[in-house]
Nucleic acid binder design. Structure first.
Lengths: 91, 91
DNA sequence: TAAGACTTGTCAGAATTTGACTAAAAGTAC
DNA sequence: GTACTTTTAGTCAAATTCTGACAAGTCTTA
């Protein structure tokens, strides 16, 4: 989701096509396309590999990847903000 | 997890035993025990029902329930706080 | 010991996720 | 327009995870 949008930006900046990144991740292009669009979730290892390929800080991409997962859980919740505050307190 | 700890407190305050709550949720006692200890995840409907039984604000319990799910995702992540900040910004 | 409360472990069926495949759609160049 | 590449959409079986139930265990109290 968030990570999908970001890797699409990065891919286009680098002038690459989906097929190339799919090959690097050893998945097929349709699958990579779905990851970019947030239809499928990337694996942690794939996120790390993508950061390596795009030469950006892996933490940036991992943050987006995790954020997408969390967002999916609370996006429609009335108590979303309270939940985040609670978790932050517990960290 | 968080919700498990809380419903245990509430149950003991009310002087109830697990068997009674298991019956109310139409699950067996071992299952309820696991929910309390965070070994199994309660369903949303069960959380709502528990709030009703204990006569507390359903939002309180839902917050703890959601928080547990989120905590599981980011608890060991170096970027945990950054992730929460990002999600909060996106809400 | 007996009885009740709670926990642990296992297991099959259900539900979800995964990766691959096909083919359609969209975009590009000729 | 056609031919070609890229991207997206849809389907499917295999793999994985989740679920609920059961049996048997521990622990406490009477």
């Amino acid at each position: 989701m968030f990570v999908g949008k970001r890797i699409k930006e990065l891919r286009e900046e680098k002038g690459m096509v989906q097929r190339q990144l799919a090959a690097a991740l050893e998945i097929d292009s349709p699958m990579y396309s779905k990851i970019e669009r947030g239809e499928r979730r990337a694996k942690r290892e794939q996120v790390i590999e993508l950061a390596r390929i795009f030469e950006i800080d892996v933490d940036e991409l991992l943050t987006l990847w995790l954020a997408g997962q969390i967002y999916e859980i609370i996006k429609d919740e009335k108590v979303a903000k309270a939940t985040l505050s609670f978790v932050e307190m517990k960290l």
